[in-house]
Every structure is written in C-alpha cells, then in structure tokens.
C-alpha cells in the first residue's frame, strides 16, 4: 500500500510539474519571500498572468 501511494505521488508530482500546474505554488512562495507584505495572487490571478506571458512568448514546437 505504501509503495502504491509513493508511486502515485511520484506520478502526480511529475504530471503537475510537466504541465506547469505546480508553477503557481513556486511563484507564490517566491512572492511571499520577496514581498512579505503584498497580497499573494489568487490562483485565478496567477493563471491570468501566466497566459499573458505565454501570449507574448510563443514557444515553437518542432516537427
């Protein structure tokens, strides 16, 4: 059971990292460290920021 939970945890961690879902946590952590008094962006606000960035920095996909 413990192994199953560990493997599931690892898969979940990898999927979240790969899709960028985990980026929000990292960003908010950083935000807290650097601007302790400013309000941390909500998930919705963060995602809006992230898509805006993506809008301006297209990444090429290869053949």
């Amino acid at each position: 059971m413990r192994t199953v939970r560990r493997v599931w945890g690892a898969v979940r961690w990898y999927a979240r990292e790969l899709t960028g879902e985990a980026e929000c946590d990292r960003y908010c952590d950083r935000h807290r460290r650097h601007h302790p008094h400013a309000p941390v962006p909500t998930r919705r606000e963060y995602e809006a920021l992230r898509t805006l960035r993506r809008e301006e920095h297209p990444q090429s996909r290869c053949c």
């Binding site: 990898y14 990292e17 790969l18 090429s60 996909r61 290869c62 053949c63």
Partner: peptide, 19 residues
Amino acid sequence: TDKRVLFGHHFAAIAGAGP
C-alpha cells in the same frame, strides 16, 4: 527545474510528426 521534468518539457517540444 528538476532534470527529469525538464527532460519531459524538452522532449515534448522537440518531438512531433517529423520522425
């Protein structure tokens, strides 16, 4: 970024219909 994650990112970006 963790190297295993970055491997996944990079592979997804280079792999496509060409090969």
